[in-house]
Design a protein around this nucleic acid. Structure first.
Length: 557
RNA sequence: UGGGGAUUGGUGCAGUGGUAGCACACCGGACUUUGGAUCCGUUGACGGAAGUUCGAAUCUUCCAUCCCCAGCCA
Protein backbone atom coordinates (compact mmCIF):
# COMPACT_ATOMS: atom_id res chain seq x y z
CA UNK A 1 0.00 0.00 0.00
CA UNK A 2 2.81 2.36 0.86
CA UNK A 3 4.21 2.18 -2.64
CA UNK A 4 0.90 3.24 -4.17
CA UNK A 5 0.32 5.94 -1.59
CA UNK A 6 3.63 7.56 -2.34
CA UNK A 7 3.03 7.42 -6.03
CA UNK A 8 2.84 10.68 -7.94
CA UNK A 9 -0.73 11.85 -8.55
CA UNK A 10 -2.05 11.31 -12.06
CA UNK A 11 -2.55 14.27 -14.35
CA UNK A 12 -6.27 14.48 -13.64
CA UNK A 13 -5.81 14.80 -9.89
CA UNK A 14 -2.86 17.13 -10.45
CA UNK A 15 -5.02 19.37 -12.60
CA UNK A 16 -7.82 19.45 -10.08
CA UNK A 17 -5.38 20.17 -7.26
CA UNK A 18 -3.88 23.07 -9.17
CA UNK A 19 -7.22 24.60 -10.12
CA UNK A 20 -8.69 24.25 -6.67
CA UNK A 21 -5.59 25.84 -5.19
CA UNK A 22 -6.14 28.73 -7.57
CA UNK A 23 -9.65 29.11 -6.26
CA UNK A 24 -11.55 27.74 -9.20
CA UNK A 25 -15.16 26.70 -8.38
CA UNK A 26 -14.63 28.24 -4.92
CA UNK A 27 -12.72 25.10 -4.04
CA UNK A 28 -15.70 22.80 -4.59
CA UNK A 29 -15.05 19.40 -6.16
CA UNK A 30 -18.06 17.55 -7.50
CA UNK A 31 -17.68 14.71 -9.97
CA UNK A 32 -20.15 12.31 -11.46
CA UNK A 33 -20.41 8.80 -12.81
CA UNK A 34 -22.89 8.76 -15.69
CA UNK A 35 -23.75 5.23 -16.85
CA UNK A 36 -26.41 4.49 -19.41
CA UNK A 37 -28.65 1.78 -17.97
CA UNK A 38 -28.40 -0.46 -20.98
CA UNK A 39 -25.85 -3.02 -19.82
CA UNK A 40 -23.73 -4.20 -16.96
CA UNK A 41 -20.64 -2.48 -15.61
CA UNK A 42 -17.27 -4.00 -16.48
CA UNK A 43 -13.74 -3.49 -15.29
CA UNK A 44 -13.29 -0.64 -17.76
CA UNK A 45 -16.00 1.21 -15.87
CA UNK A 46 -14.11 0.46 -12.67
CA UNK A 47 -11.39 2.81 -13.86
CA UNK A 48 -13.87 5.65 -14.26
CA UNK A 49 -15.58 4.72 -11.00
CA UNK A 50 -12.35 4.78 -9.03
CA UNK A 51 -11.34 8.08 -10.59
CA UNK A 52 -14.72 9.78 -10.18
CA UNK A 53 -15.46 8.59 -6.66
CA UNK A 54 -11.82 8.46 -5.59
CA UNK A 55 -10.91 11.98 -6.64
CA UNK A 56 -14.08 13.45 -5.17
CA UNK A 57 -13.34 11.76 -1.86
CA UNK A 58 -9.72 12.87 -1.82
CA UNK A 59 -10.65 16.49 -2.43
CA UNK A 60 -13.41 16.50 0.15
CA UNK A 61 -16.19 16.64 -2.42
CA UNK A 62 -18.71 14.12 -3.60
CA UNK A 63 -19.60 12.13 -6.67
CA UNK A 64 -23.05 12.03 -8.21
CA UNK A 65 -24.44 8.86 -9.68
CA UNK A 66 -26.48 9.94 -12.65
CA UNK A 67 -28.12 7.61 -15.09
CA UNK A 68 -27.96 8.94 -18.60
CA UNK A 69 -31.30 7.52 -19.60
CA UNK A 70 -32.08 9.52 -22.71
CA UNK A 71 -32.79 6.61 -25.03
CA UNK A 72 -35.93 4.72 -23.95
CA UNK A 73 -35.54 2.03 -26.57
CA UNK A 74 -32.39 0.64 -25.00
CA UNK A 75 -32.69 1.19 -21.29
CA UNK A 76 -34.21 -0.88 -18.51
CA UNK A 77 -34.76 -0.68 -14.78
CA UNK A 78 -33.02 -4.02 -14.39
CA UNK A 79 -29.77 -2.34 -15.37
CA UNK A 80 -30.37 0.62 -13.09
CA UNK A 81 -30.54 -1.75 -10.13
CA UNK A 82 -27.62 -3.90 -11.22
CA UNK A 83 -25.37 -0.90 -11.75
CA UNK A 84 -26.06 0.43 -8.27
CA UNK A 85 -25.40 -2.99 -6.79
CA UNK A 86 -22.08 -3.26 -8.60
CA UNK A 87 -20.90 0.20 -7.55
CA UNK A 88 -21.71 -0.56 -3.93
CA UNK A 89 -19.85 -3.85 -4.21
CA UNK A 90 -16.78 -2.06 -5.55
CA UNK A 91 -16.93 0.02 -2.41
CA UNK A 92 -18.36 3.39 -3.36
CA UNK A 93 -21.34 5.35 -2.09
CA UNK A 94 -23.21 8.30 -3.59
CA UNK A 95 -25.33 9.20 -0.57
CA UNK A 96 -28.31 11.30 -1.65
CA UNK A 97 -26.72 12.14 -4.96
CA UNK A 98 -28.66 9.82 -7.22
CA UNK A 99 -29.96 11.47 -10.36
CA UNK A 100 -31.43 10.69 -13.73
CA UNK A 101 -31.07 12.65 -16.93
CA UNK A 102 -34.75 11.88 -17.44
CA UNK A 103 -35.43 13.96 -14.35
CA UNK A 104 -34.29 16.99 -16.33
CA UNK A 105 -36.46 16.48 -19.41
CA UNK A 106 -38.70 19.48 -18.73
CA UNK A 107 -35.81 21.83 -18.02
CA UNK A 108 -34.03 20.58 -21.12
CA UNK A 109 -37.14 21.26 -23.15
CA UNK A 110 -37.35 24.81 -21.85
CA UNK A 111 -33.70 25.39 -22.72
CA UNK A 112 -34.33 24.08 -26.21
CA UNK A 113 -37.15 26.60 -26.59
CA UNK A 114 -34.74 29.27 -25.41
CA UNK A 115 -32.26 28.31 -28.11
CA UNK A 116 -34.97 28.37 -30.76
CA UNK A 117 -36.02 31.82 -29.63
CA UNK A 118 -32.43 32.95 -29.93
CA UNK A 119 -32.35 31.63 -33.48
CA UNK A 120 -29.81 28.98 -32.47
CA UNK A 121 -31.88 25.89 -33.13
CA UNK A 122 -34.31 24.74 -35.78
CA UNK A 123 -36.69 21.94 -36.64
CA UNK A 124 -35.47 19.83 -39.54
CA UNK A 125 -37.39 17.41 -41.78
CA UNK A 126 -34.41 15.65 -43.31
CA UNK A 127 -34.44 11.85 -43.23
CA UNK A 128 -31.47 10.14 -41.62
CA UNK A 129 -30.04 9.35 -45.05
CA UNK A 130 -30.43 12.90 -46.22
CA UNK A 131 -28.92 14.25 -43.07
CA UNK A 132 -25.87 12.08 -43.51
CA UNK A 133 -25.53 13.31 -47.04
CA UNK A 134 -25.85 16.96 -46.04
CA UNK A 135 -23.37 16.51 -43.26
CA UNK A 136 -20.49 16.14 -45.72
CA UNK A 137 -17.45 14.01 -45.01
CA UNK A 138 -14.38 14.30 -42.85
CA UNK A 139 -12.60 16.23 -45.57
CA UNK A 140 -15.51 18.07 -47.20
CA UNK A 141 -17.76 20.59 -45.49
CA UNK A 142 -21.46 19.89 -45.06
CA UNK A 143 -24.35 21.79 -46.66
CA UNK A 144 -27.17 23.65 -45.03
CA UNK A 145 -30.44 21.79 -44.68
CA UNK A 146 -33.25 23.41 -46.73
CA UNK A 147 -35.07 23.93 -43.42
CA UNK A 148 -32.21 25.65 -41.69
CA UNK A 149 -33.71 29.09 -42.01
CA UNK A 150 -37.24 28.50 -40.82
CA UNK A 151 -38.57 31.38 -38.78
CA UNK A 152 -38.44 31.37 -35.02
CA UNK A 153 -42.22 31.28 -34.89
CA UNK A 154 -42.44 28.31 -37.20
CA UNK A 155 -39.72 26.45 -35.27
CA UNK A 156 -41.49 27.15 -31.98
CA UNK A 157 -44.75 25.88 -33.40
CA UNK A 158 -43.21 22.78 -34.95
CA UNK A 159 -41.23 21.91 -31.83
CA UNK A 160 -44.32 22.22 -29.64
CA UNK A 161 -46.19 19.93 -32.03
CA UNK A 162 -43.29 17.47 -31.93
CA UNK A 163 -43.71 17.28 -28.19
CA UNK A 164 -47.47 17.01 -28.56
CA UNK A 165 -47.05 13.87 -30.59
CA UNK A 166 -48.30 15.15 -33.94
CA UNK A 167 -45.51 13.51 -35.90
CA UNK A 168 -44.41 9.91 -36.29
CA UNK A 169 -41.04 8.56 -35.21
CA UNK A 170 -38.15 10.04 -37.12
CA UNK A 171 -40.27 12.56 -39.03
CA UNK A 172 -38.52 15.59 -37.57
CA UNK A 173 -35.61 16.55 -35.38
CA UNK A 174 -34.56 19.63 -33.51
CA UNK A 175 -31.06 20.69 -34.47
CA UNK A 176 -28.62 23.23 -33.10
CA UNK A 177 -27.62 25.83 -35.66
CA UNK A 178 -23.85 25.99 -35.40
CA UNK A 179 -21.52 25.49 -38.37
CA UNK A 180 -22.01 23.05 -41.23
CA UNK A 181 -18.44 23.65 -42.41
CA UNK A 182 -16.69 22.94 -39.12
CA UNK A 183 -13.76 20.57 -39.23
CA UNK A 184 -15.25 19.13 -36.06
CA UNK A 185 -18.19 17.12 -37.33
CA UNK A 186 -19.92 17.37 -33.96
CA UNK A 187 -20.50 21.04 -34.65
CA UNK A 188 -22.27 20.50 -37.99
CA UNK A 189 -25.73 21.24 -36.61
CA UNK A 190 -26.02 18.32 -34.20
CA UNK A 191 -29.40 16.80 -33.48
CA UNK A 192 -30.81 17.80 -30.09
CA UNK A 193 -34.12 15.97 -30.11
CA UNK A 194 -35.54 13.01 -31.95
CA UNK A 195 -39.07 11.65 -31.99
CA UNK A 196 -39.56 8.28 -30.31
CA UNK A 197 -43.02 7.13 -29.40
CA UNK A 198 -41.60 4.78 -26.85
CA UNK A 199 -42.23 4.11 -23.19
CA UNK A 200 -39.43 5.25 -20.93
CA UNK A 201 -38.50 3.19 -17.89
CA UNK A 202 -38.98 6.21 -15.65
CA UNK A 203 -41.09 8.80 -17.44
CA UNK A 204 -43.46 6.29 -18.98
CA UNK A 205 -45.38 7.87 -21.84
CA UNK A 206 -44.98 11.46 -20.75
CA UNK A 207 -42.67 12.19 -23.65
CA UNK A 208 -42.40 11.24 -27.29
CA UNK A 209 -39.37 13.41 -27.98
CA UNK A 210 -36.13 12.52 -26.30
CA UNK A 211 -32.94 14.57 -25.96
CA UNK A 212 -29.73 13.33 -27.48
CA UNK A 213 -26.94 12.49 -25.07
CA UNK A 214 -24.89 15.47 -26.21
CA UNK A 215 -27.74 17.84 -25.52
CA UNK A 216 -28.54 16.37 -22.10
CA UNK A 217 -24.98 15.86 -20.97
CA UNK A 218 -23.48 19.25 -20.29
CA UNK A 219 -26.67 20.79 -18.99
CA UNK A 220 -27.11 17.98 -16.50
CA UNK A 221 -23.79 18.98 -15.00
CA UNK A 222 -24.94 22.52 -14.86
CA UNK A 223 -28.09 21.55 -12.97
CA UNK A 224 -26.09 19.42 -10.54
CA UNK A 225 -23.28 21.97 -10.25
CA UNK A 226 -20.74 19.33 -11.18
CA UNK A 227 -17.28 20.89 -11.33
CA UNK A 228 -15.29 18.15 -13.01
CA UNK A 229 -16.52 15.87 -15.72
CA UNK A 230 -13.94 13.13 -16.18
CA UNK A 231 -14.55 11.16 -19.33
CA UNK A 232 -12.80 9.13 -21.97
CA UNK A 233 -10.77 10.52 -24.86
CA UNK A 234 -13.48 10.02 -27.44
CA UNK A 235 -15.41 12.92 -25.94
CA UNK A 236 -12.64 15.40 -26.47
CA UNK A 237 -14.22 16.30 -29.80
CA UNK A 238 -17.52 16.87 -28.06
CA UNK A 239 -16.22 19.33 -25.50
CA UNK A 240 -16.56 22.31 -27.84
CA UNK A 241 -20.20 21.35 -28.33
CA UNK A 242 -20.89 21.11 -24.59
CA UNK A 243 -19.20 24.44 -24.12
CA UNK A 244 -21.25 25.96 -26.93
CA UNK A 245 -24.55 24.83 -25.39
CA UNK A 246 -23.68 26.17 -21.96
CA UNK A 247 -22.44 29.46 -23.37
CA UNK A 248 -25.51 30.00 -25.50
CA UNK A 249 -27.71 29.23 -22.52
CA UNK A 250 -25.57 31.33 -20.20
CA UNK A 251 -25.37 28.61 -17.58
CA UNK A 252 -22.66 27.20 -15.34
CA UNK A 253 -20.45 24.64 -16.94
CA UNK A 254 -17.91 22.24 -15.53
CA UNK A 255 -14.37 21.45 -16.56
CA UNK A 256 -14.22 18.34 -18.66
CA UNK A 257 -10.99 16.34 -18.52
CA UNK A 258 -10.46 13.40 -20.83
CA UNK A 259 -8.40 10.31 -20.09
CA UNK A 260 -7.66 7.07 -21.91
CA UNK A 261 -10.02 4.22 -21.26
CA UNK A 262 -8.77 0.91 -19.90
CA UNK A 263 -7.88 -1.98 -22.16
CA UNK A 264 -6.80 -5.39 -20.89
CA UNK A 265 -5.09 -8.15 -22.82
CA UNK A 266 -6.97 -11.35 -23.68
CA UNK A 267 -10.36 -9.78 -23.24
CA UNK A 268 -12.88 -7.47 -24.87
CA UNK A 269 -14.46 -4.53 -23.10
CA UNK A 270 -17.05 -3.18 -25.46
CA UNK A 271 -20.67 -3.40 -24.44
CA UNK A 272 -21.62 -4.56 -27.90
CA UNK A 273 -19.19 -7.47 -27.85
CA UNK A 274 -19.97 -8.47 -24.30
CA UNK A 275 -23.66 -8.49 -25.18
CA UNK A 276 -22.87 -10.71 -28.13
CA UNK A 277 -20.99 -13.19 -25.93
CA UNK A 278 -24.08 -13.44 -23.75
CA UNK A 279 -26.64 -13.57 -26.54
CA UNK A 280 -24.76 -16.18 -28.51
CA UNK A 281 -24.31 -18.31 -25.41
CA UNK A 282 -20.56 -18.24 -25.68
CA UNK A 283 -20.71 -17.57 -21.95
CA UNK A 284 -23.43 -18.46 -19.46
CA UNK A 285 -24.56 -14.89 -18.77
CA UNK A 286 -23.42 -11.48 -17.60
CA UNK A 287 -22.10 -12.99 -14.40
CA UNK A 288 -20.23 -15.83 -16.05
CA UNK A 289 -16.89 -15.94 -14.19
CA UNK A 290 -15.06 -15.54 -17.50
CA UNK A 291 -16.70 -12.19 -18.17
CA UNK A 292 -14.83 -8.95 -17.39
CA UNK A 293 -18.04 -7.54 -15.95
CA UNK A 294 -17.97 -6.63 -12.29
CA UNK A 295 -20.58 -9.34 -11.73
CA UNK A 296 -18.47 -11.85 -13.60
CA UNK A 297 -15.33 -10.93 -11.68
CA UNK A 298 -17.26 -11.07 -8.46
CA UNK A 299 -18.47 -14.59 -9.19
CA UNK A 300 -14.99 -15.56 -10.24
CA UNK A 301 -13.87 -14.61 -6.75
CA UNK A 302 -12.19 -11.26 -7.33
CA UNK A 303 -12.21 -8.89 -4.39
CA UNK A 304 -13.12 -5.20 -4.68
CA UNK A 305 -9.82 -4.42 -2.99
CA UNK A 306 -7.83 -6.19 -5.68
CA UNK A 307 -9.70 -4.38 -8.43
CA UNK A 308 -9.19 -0.99 -6.81
CA UNK A 309 -5.51 -1.71 -6.29
CA UNK A 310 -5.23 -2.72 -9.92
CA UNK A 311 -6.87 0.49 -11.09
CA UNK A 312 -4.51 2.49 -8.92
CA UNK A 313 -1.48 0.77 -10.37
CA UNK A 314 -2.64 1.14 -13.93
CA UNK A 315 -2.61 4.89 -13.53
CA UNK A 316 -4.36 7.51 -15.59
CA UNK A 317 -3.02 8.90 -18.83
CA UNK A 318 -4.05 9.95 -22.28
CA UNK A 319 -2.18 7.34 -24.27
CA UNK A 320 -3.82 4.33 -25.81
CA UNK A 321 -2.97 1.39 -23.56
CA UNK A 322 -3.18 -2.37 -23.26
CA UNK A 323 -2.66 -3.58 -19.72
CA UNK A 324 -1.40 -7.11 -19.32
CA UNK A 325 -3.82 -9.43 -17.61
CA UNK A 326 -0.86 -10.50 -15.46
CA UNK A 327 -1.03 -7.23 -13.55
CA UNK A 328 -4.66 -7.79 -12.60
CA UNK A 329 -3.83 -11.32 -11.53
CA UNK A 330 -0.89 -10.09 -9.50
CA UNK A 331 -3.10 -7.69 -7.57
CA UNK A 332 -5.58 -10.47 -6.98
CA UNK A 333 -3.01 -12.94 -5.69
CA UNK A 334 -1.47 -10.35 -3.45
CA UNK A 335 -4.81 -9.63 -1.81
CA UNK A 336 -5.96 -13.24 -1.60
CA UNK A 337 -2.62 -14.38 -0.21
CA UNK A 338 -3.25 -12.25 2.85
CA UNK A 339 -6.87 -13.19 3.43
CA UNK A 340 -7.68 -16.63 2.05
CA UNK A 341 -7.68 -19.62 4.40
CA UNK A 342 -5.54 -22.50 3.18
CA UNK A 343 -7.08 -25.87 2.71
CA UNK A 344 -6.18 -29.11 0.93
CA UNK A 345 -8.07 -30.26 -2.13
CA UNK A 346 -7.27 -32.84 -4.76
CA UNK A 347 -8.50 -31.97 -8.22
CA UNK A 348 -7.31 -35.01 -10.20
CA UNK A 349 -7.30 -37.84 -7.63
CA UNK A 350 -4.84 -40.72 -7.49
CA UNK A 351 -5.18 -43.33 -4.74
CA UNK A 352 -2.33 -43.77 -2.28
CA UNK A 353 -2.20 -46.64 0.21
CA UNK A 354 0.14 -46.43 3.20
CA UNK A 355 0.93 -50.09 3.60
CA UNK A 356 2.35 -49.95 7.10
CA UNK A 357 -0.39 -47.70 8.50
CA UNK A 358 -3.10 -49.50 10.52
CA UNK A 359 -6.30 -49.85 8.51
CA UNK A 360 -8.57 -48.66 11.28
CA UNK A 361 -6.43 -45.83 12.58
CA UNK A 362 -7.21 -42.14 12.15
CA UNK A 363 -5.07 -39.25 13.39
CA UNK A 364 -6.04 -35.62 13.58
CA UNK A 365 -3.09 -33.52 12.46
CA UNK A 366 -2.59 -29.83 13.03
CA UNK A 367 -2.60 -27.57 10.01
CA UNK A 368 -2.05 -23.83 9.77
CA UNK A 369 -4.94 -21.87 8.25
CA UNK A 370 -2.83 -19.05 6.90
CA UNK A 371 0.94 -18.77 7.26
CA UNK A 372 0.61 -15.07 6.40
CA UNK A 373 -1.76 -14.42 9.27
CA UNK A 374 -1.37 -16.21 12.59
CA UNK A 375 -4.67 -14.84 13.86
CA UNK A 376 -6.47 -17.14 11.46
CA UNK A 377 -5.45 -20.05 13.67
CA UNK A 378 -5.12 -23.75 13.00
CA UNK A 379 -7.40 -26.65 12.24
CA UNK A 380 -7.17 -30.42 12.33
CA UNK A 381 -7.02 -32.63 9.29
CA UNK A 382 -7.76 -36.37 9.49
CA UNK A 383 -5.13 -38.77 8.23
CA UNK A 384 -5.74 -42.45 7.45
CA UNK A 385 -4.35 -45.39 5.51
CA UNK A 386 -5.88 -44.50 2.16
CA UNK A 387 -5.41 -41.08 0.68
CA UNK A 388 -5.99 -39.11 -2.48
CA UNK A 389 -3.14 -37.18 -3.99
CA UNK A 390 -2.85 -35.19 -7.20
CA UNK A 391 -2.10 -37.22 -10.32
CA UNK A 392 0.49 -34.63 -11.26
CA UNK A 393 2.32 -35.27 -8.02
CA UNK A 394 3.35 -38.77 -9.05
CA UNK A 395 5.60 -39.82 -11.94
CA UNK A 396 6.62 -43.37 -12.51
CA UNK A 397 9.48 -42.12 -14.62
CA UNK A 398 10.31 -38.71 -13.16
CA UNK A 399 11.99 -36.05 -15.27
CA UNK A 400 14.92 -34.01 -13.98
CA UNK A 401 14.08 -31.57 -11.20
CA UNK A 402 10.86 -33.42 -10.38
CA UNK A 403 10.71 -33.22 -6.60
CA UNK A 404 7.48 -35.09 -6.03
CA UNK A 405 6.58 -38.70 -5.54
CA UNK A 406 8.11 -41.44 -7.68
CA UNK A 407 9.20 -45.06 -7.10
CA UNK A 408 11.77 -45.35 -4.31
CA UNK A 409 11.60 -41.63 -3.59
CA UNK A 410 10.55 -39.92 -0.37
CA UNK A 411 8.17 -37.03 -0.22
CA UNK A 412 6.48 -35.14 2.59
CA UNK A 413 2.73 -35.26 2.93
CA UNK A 414 1.96 -31.80 4.15
CA UNK A 415 1.40 -31.65 7.91
CA UNK A 416 1.51 -35.48 8.03
CA UNK A 417 4.41 -37.88 7.41
CA UNK A 418 7.32 -38.58 5.14
CA UNK A 419 6.31 -41.40 2.85
CA UNK A 420 8.24 -43.49 0.36
CA UNK A 421 6.80 -45.05 -2.76
CA UNK A 422 7.32 -48.81 -2.74
CA UNK A 423 5.19 -50.01 -5.63
CA UNK A 424 2.67 -49.00 -8.24
CA UNK A 425 -0.55 -50.59 -9.47
CA UNK A 426 -1.50 -50.30 -13.14
CA UNK A 427 -4.73 -50.90 -14.93
CA UNK A 428 -5.02 -52.97 -18.11
CA UNK A 429 -4.07 -49.93 -20.19
CA UNK A 430 -0.89 -49.45 -18.25
CA UNK A 431 -2.05 -46.36 -16.40
CA UNK A 432 -1.10 -45.86 -12.77
CA UNK A 433 -4.22 -46.27 -10.66
CA UNK A 434 -2.68 -46.70 -7.25
CA UNK A 435 0.54 -45.90 -5.50
CA UNK A 436 1.67 -47.87 -2.50
CA UNK A 437 3.88 -46.27 0.12
CA UNK A 438 5.30 -46.79 3.55
CA UNK A 439 5.38 -44.01 6.11
CA UNK A 440 7.94 -43.13 8.75
CA UNK A 441 6.11 -42.82 12.11
CA UNK A 442 8.96 -40.69 13.44
CA UNK A 443 8.10 -37.85 11.08
CA UNK A 444 4.63 -37.05 12.39
CA UNK A 445 3.60 -33.56 11.46
CA UNK A 446 6.08 -33.60 8.62
CA UNK A 447 9.23 -32.76 10.53
CA UNK A 448 12.45 -34.57 9.77
CA UNK A 449 16.20 -34.09 9.64
CA UNK A 450 16.46 -35.77 6.28
CA UNK A 451 16.37 -33.55 3.25
CA UNK A 452 13.11 -34.15 1.52
CA UNK A 453 12.73 -31.96 -1.52
CA UNK A 454 9.04 -32.24 -2.12
CA UNK A 455 5.92 -31.57 -0.09
CA UNK A 456 2.60 -32.55 -1.58
CA UNK A 457 -1.00 -32.11 -0.49
CA UNK A 458 -3.45 -34.91 0.14
CA UNK A 459 -6.91 -35.75 1.43
CA UNK A 460 -7.92 -38.77 3.46
CA UNK A 461 -10.06 -40.94 1.19
CA UNK A 462 -12.36 -41.96 3.98
CA UNK A 463 -12.98 -38.38 5.09
CA UNK A 464 -12.86 -36.65 1.74
CA UNK A 465 -15.82 -34.61 0.57
CA UNK A 466 -16.62 -34.80 -3.13
CA UNK A 467 -16.70 -31.51 -4.98
CA UNK A 468 -17.13 -30.00 -8.39
CA UNK A 469 -14.45 -27.58 -9.51
CA UNK A 470 -14.54 -25.17 -12.41
CA UNK A 471 -11.20 -24.16 -13.87
CA UNK A 472 -11.25 -20.96 -15.87
CA UNK A 473 -8.87 -19.61 -18.43
CA UNK A 474 -9.00 -16.49 -20.59
CA UNK A 475 -11.90 -16.27 -23.01
CA UNK A 476 -9.52 -15.36 -25.82
CA UNK A 477 -6.24 -16.88 -26.92
CA UNK A 478 -5.08 -13.70 -28.58
CA UNK A 479 -3.76 -10.90 -26.36
CA UNK A 480 -5.54 -8.43 -28.60
CA UNK A 481 -8.81 -10.03 -29.69
CA UNK A 482 -10.06 -6.67 -30.90
CA UNK A 483 -7.39 -6.64 -33.56
CA UNK A 484 -8.27 -10.01 -35.03
CA UNK A 485 -10.06 -9.92 -38.37
CA UNK A 486 -13.06 -11.39 -36.68
CA UNK A 487 -12.76 -10.89 -32.96
CA UNK A 488 -14.46 -14.19 -32.26
CA UNK A 489 -11.99 -16.35 -34.20
CA UNK A 490 -9.58 -16.69 -31.31
CA UNK A 491 -12.03 -17.69 -28.64
CA UNK A 492 -10.39 -20.13 -26.24
CA UNK A 493 -12.20 -23.49 -26.54
CA UNK A 494 -10.84 -24.43 -23.12
CA UNK A 495 -11.80 -21.34 -21.18
CA UNK A 496 -13.87 -23.53 -18.88
CA UNK A 497 -12.96 -27.00 -17.67
CA UNK A 498 -15.34 -28.62 -15.22
CA UNK A 499 -13.96 -31.24 -12.87
CA UNK A 500 -16.60 -33.40 -11.22
CA UNK A 501 -14.42 -35.90 -9.42
CA UNK A 502 -12.56 -33.76 -6.91
CA UNK A 503 -12.04 -34.29 -3.19
CA UNK A 504 -11.67 -31.63 -0.56
CA UNK A 505 -10.80 -31.91 3.11
CA UNK A 506 -13.69 -32.16 5.58
CA UNK A 507 -13.18 -28.61 6.85
CA UNK A 508 -14.94 -27.55 3.66
CA UNK A 509 -18.13 -29.42 4.51
CA UNK A 510 -19.79 -26.18 5.43
CA UNK A 511 -18.14 -23.88 2.93
CA UNK A 512 -20.68 -21.19 2.16
CA UNK A 513 -21.22 -19.45 -1.17
CA UNK A 514 -19.09 -16.34 -1.42
CA UNK A 515 -16.21 -17.70 0.64
CA UNK A 516 -12.67 -17.76 -0.70
CA UNK A 517 -10.03 -20.39 -0.07
CA UNK A 518 -6.58 -21.20 -1.21
CA UNK A 519 -6.29 -24.83 -2.24
CA UNK A 520 -2.66 -25.33 -1.30
CA UNK A 521 -0.30 -25.57 -4.24
CA UNK A 522 -3.18 -25.14 -6.69
CA UNK A 523 -4.82 -21.77 -6.57
CA UNK A 524 -7.50 -19.57 -5.06
CA UNK A 525 -11.08 -20.75 -5.20
CA UNK A 526 -14.46 -19.14 -4.69
CA UNK A 527 -17.51 -21.00 -3.46
CA UNK A 528 -20.02 -20.51 -6.25
CA UNK A 529 -23.63 -19.50 -5.54
CA UNK A 530 -24.62 -22.81 -7.15
CA UNK A 531 -22.91 -24.58 -4.29
CA UNK A 532 -24.93 -26.44 -1.66
CA UNK A 533 -24.23 -28.95 1.09
CA UNK A 534 -25.27 -31.66 -1.39
CA UNK A 535 -23.07 -30.43 -4.18
CA UNK A 536 -20.11 -28.20 -3.52
CA UNK A 537 -18.98 -26.04 -6.41
CA UNK A 538 -15.70 -24.14 -6.45
CA UNK A 539 -14.60 -21.64 -9.10
CA UNK A 540 -10.90 -21.20 -9.60
CA UNK A 541 -10.34 -17.49 -9.19
CA UNK A 542 -6.71 -17.58 -10.19
CA UNK A 543 -4.01 -20.22 -10.03
CA UNK A 544 -0.98 -19.96 -7.80
CA UNK A 545 2.20 -18.99 -9.59
CA UNK A 546 3.61 -22.22 -10.93
CA UNK A 547 7.37 -22.30 -11.19
CA UNK A 548 7.43 -26.07 -11.76
CA UNK A 549 5.15 -25.62 -14.75
CA UNK A 550 7.62 -23.11 -16.08
CA UNK A 551 10.60 -25.41 -15.55
CA UNK A 552 8.77 -28.29 -17.19
CA UNK A 553 8.03 -26.14 -20.20
CA UNK A 554 11.65 -25.09 -20.51
CA UNK A 555 12.88 -28.68 -20.21
CA UNK A 556 10.59 -29.70 -23.01
CA UNK A 557 12.02 -26.90 -25.10
C1' U B 1 -6.18 16.49 -48.85
C1' G B 2 -10.64 18.05 -42.43
C1' G B 3 -10.77 18.18 -36.87
C1' G B 4 -8.91 16.17 -32.19
C1' G B 5 -5.34 13.25 -29.27
C1' A B 6 -0.91 10.46 -28.47
C1' U B 7 4.46 8.72 -28.92
C1' U B 8 9.89 6.90 -22.28
C1' G B 9 12.47 -0.77 -21.54
C1' G B 10 7.98 -6.54 -23.11
C1' U B 11 3.42 -3.84 -20.62
C1' G B 12 1.86 0.43 -17.94
C1' C B 13 3.02 4.87 -15.11
C1' A B 14 6.65 8.88 -13.30
C1' G B 15 10.29 12.33 -14.67
C1' U B 16 8.58 19.53 -17.49
C1' G B 17 16.61 21.93 -18.83
C1' G B 18 21.45 19.13 -14.98
C1' U B 19 23.83 11.63 -14.21
C1' A B 20 16.22 8.39 -16.80
C1' G B 21 12.93 6.04 -11.85
C1' C B 22 8.68 2.76 -10.05
C1' A B 23 5.35 -1.39 -10.73
C1' C B 24 4.11 -5.81 -13.40
C1' A B 25 6.38 -9.32 -16.71
C1' C B 26 11.10 -11.70 -17.87
C1' C B 27 15.82 -13.93 -16.37
C1' G B 28 19.11 -15.46 -12.19
C1' G B 29 19.88 -16.44 -6.95
C1' A B 30 18.58 -16.99 -1.42
C1' C B 31 14.98 -19.06 1.72
C1' U B 32 10.92 -22.40 2.25
C1' U B 33 6.66 -28.35 5.68
C1' U B 34 2.53 -24.67 -0.48
C1' G B 35 7.94 -25.60 -6.69
C1' G B 36 3.06 -20.53 -2.92
C1' A B 37 4.68 -16.31 -0.11
C1' U B 38 9.05 -13.47 1.11
C1' C B 39 14.01 -11.46 0.05
C1' C B 40 18.13 -10.12 -3.23
C1' G B 41 20.01 -9.28 -8.02
C1' U B 42 20.59 -8.98 -13.75
C1' U B 43 18.89 -7.56 -18.54
C1' G B 44 16.30 -3.75 -20.87
C1' A B 45 13.59 2.63 -22.94
C1' C B 46 13.23 8.68 -24.12
C1' G B 47 9.73 7.37 -32.52
C1' G B 48 13.21 10.16 -36.22
C1' A B 49 15.93 14.53 -37.93
C1' A B 50 17.54 19.37 -37.40
C1' G B 51 17.91 23.56 -34.04
C1' U B 52 18.34 26.53 -29.15
C1' U B 53 21.68 25.66 -24.83
C1' C B 54 27.65 24.70 -21.24
C1' G B 55 23.84 20.89 -20.89
C1' A B 56 17.41 18.50 -23.93
C1' A B 57 13.05 12.88 -22.48
C1' U B 58 11.91 17.96 -21.12
C1' C B 59 12.14 24.14 -25.33
C1' U B 60 11.55 25.16 -31.15
C1' U B 61 10.78 23.32 -36.17
C1' C B 62 9.98 19.57 -39.56
C1' C B 63 8.99 14.34 -40.40
C1' A B 64 7.03 9.48 -39.13
C1' U B 65 3.66 6.27 -36.80
C1' C B 66 -0.72 5.06 -33.97
C1' C B 67 -5.76 6.14 -31.97
C1' C B 68 -10.68 8.75 -32.16
C1' C B 69 -14.64 11.54 -35.09
C1' A B 70 -19.07 11.60 -40.76
C1' G B 71 -25.90 7.52 -35.18
C1' C B 72 -32.29 10.66 -35.21
C1' C B 73 -26.34 5.60 -29.84
C1' A B 74 -24.01 6.93 -25.32
Amino acid sequence: MSNTESRAPDFVRATIATEIAQGRFDGRVVTRFPPEPNGYLHIGHAKALCLDFGAAQEFGGHCNLRFDDTNPTKEETEYVDAIQDDIRWLGYAWGDHLYYASGYFEQLYQWAVQLIQAGKAYVDDLTPDEMRDYRGTLTEPGRASPHRNRSVAENLDLFARMRAGEFPDGAKTLRAKIDMASGNVNLRDPVMYRIRHAEHHRTGNAWCIYPMYDWAHGQSYSIERVTYSLCSMEYEDHRPLYDWYCEQLGIFHPQQIEFARLNISHTVLSKRKLLQLVNENIVAGWDDPRMPTLRGLRRRGYTPEAIRDFIERVGVGKTQNLIELALLEHCLREDLNKRAARVMAVLHPLKVVIENYPADQVEELDAVNNPEDATMGTRQVPFARELWIEQDDFREDPPKKFFRLSPGVEVRLRYAYIVKCTSVVHNERGQVIQVNCTYDPATRGGSTDRKVKGTIHWVSARHAIPAKVRLYDTLFLSPKPDEDEDWKTRINPNSLETLTNCFVEPALAHAAPGERYQFERTGYFYVDPDSSTDQRVFNRTVSLRDSWGKIEKQEQG
